[in-house]
């Protein structure tokens, strides 16, 4: 550069300010991160904590307006004892477990091969189909339950858990297929080509290469399917009116109300127990949810 015609960077103090501090910037970033995480944690944890506290109170303590709702003075397990001794509640639990396990099995059996086909076998209309699968997920169940009521009714499955088993996969399959398409797409194409040359059929490739390699994705999809069918509310509300066919979600809120008396203690205890299985499933499966399982397949 010619010194006479060009200026040095330091001649532009507005562009080259005094140097900042890397450690100070990092400290502020951490503080901001903890503040927002803390805020989110309070918002999300407040309802379950309130449920827990309420479920441990006696009816008298609950009704006493002069006490703080956030403290328990005389903890009791009477509501838990009552609800666990209630055959109706145990029936809700059994219904939820049966429906959820079958729905998860159906979802995986359909969406894993579907995602494999859509992501790897290029056939006429495969991309349109893949988009279509996702679009069906965008139609809310609050709209779908009206036509589905006709279908479930005409099959004679109203007031039966088998109606739910039939209907829930319409929520879970599209989304799980979509998740799995994304996971399979991240598996390098050379892996299938290597398997093809090694002599694998499409089915062997799916079962021996794709399923083990995409296990984190399959677990994520399983968790999703489990949560959706465990927590489904709109469909059982619409299709189930008989208490013995109800799953937990609607059973707890509809059957533990006697006339206009809310058994708050039992409702809270029941809701808390109902929320437990997804937590257990998360904790159990997250142990297997090891990210970076594909590390080492290919370079970079």
């Amino acid at each position: 550069m010619d010194a006479a015609t060009s200026a040095a960077n330091r001649d532009f103090p507005k562009l080259y300010r005094r140097a900042g501090s890397l450690s100070r910037e990092r400290a502020w970033a951490l503080r901001a991160a903890y503040a927002s995480l803390g805020f989110a944690a309070v918002i999300f944890l407040a309802p379950p904590v309130y449920m827990l506290i309420t479920s441990l109170k006696t009816n008298a303590e609950m009704a006493d307006q002069s006490l703080s709702p956030w403290f328990v003075r005389e903890p009791t397990l009477e509501h838990y004892a009552a609800i666990l001794g209630n055959p109706l509640f145990l029936g809700f639990f059994r219904n939820s477990i049966i429906v959820t396990l079958i729905v998860v099995a159906i979802t995986m059996a359909v969406s894993v091969p579907a995602a494999f086909a859509l992501s790897r076998m290029r056939f006429w209309g495969s991309t349109t189909l893949a988009t279509g699968v996702f679009l069906t997920y965008l139609v809310p169940d609050t709209l779908l339950f009206i036509p589905l009521y006709q279908i479930v009714g005409s099959l004679g499955l109203l007031n039966s858990i088998w109606g739910l088993v039939l209907v829930y996969p319409t929520l879970t399959v599209p989304f799980c297929t979509w998740i799995m398409i994304g996971y399979f797409a991240s598996i390098p194409k050379e892996l299938d080509e290597a398997a093809l040359i090694d002599g694998a059929s499409w089915l062997q490739m799916l079962l021996r290469i794709f399923v083990p390699v995409a296990l984190p994705g399959i677990i994520a999809a399983t968790i999703f399917a489990f949560t959706v069918s465990w927590a489904a509310f709109v469909y059982p509300t619409a299709f189930i009116t008989k208490p013995e066919a109800m799953p937990l979600t609607i059973g707890v809120v509809s059957q533990l109300v006697r006339g206009d008396t809310f058994a708050w203690g039992q409702i809270m205890a029941g809701a808390l127990l109902a929320a437990l299985p997804p937590v257990v499933v998360y904790v159990f499966l997250l142990d297997y949810y090891i990210a970076g399982l594909t590390a080492g397949a290919t370079k970079g």
Partner: peptide, 13 residues
């Protein structure tokens, strides 16, 4: 035939 790929394509599991 057998093929060796640029990015190795080993089965990671």
């Amino acid at each position: 035939i057998a093929m060796v790929f640029q990015n190795y394509a080993l089965y990671p599991h």
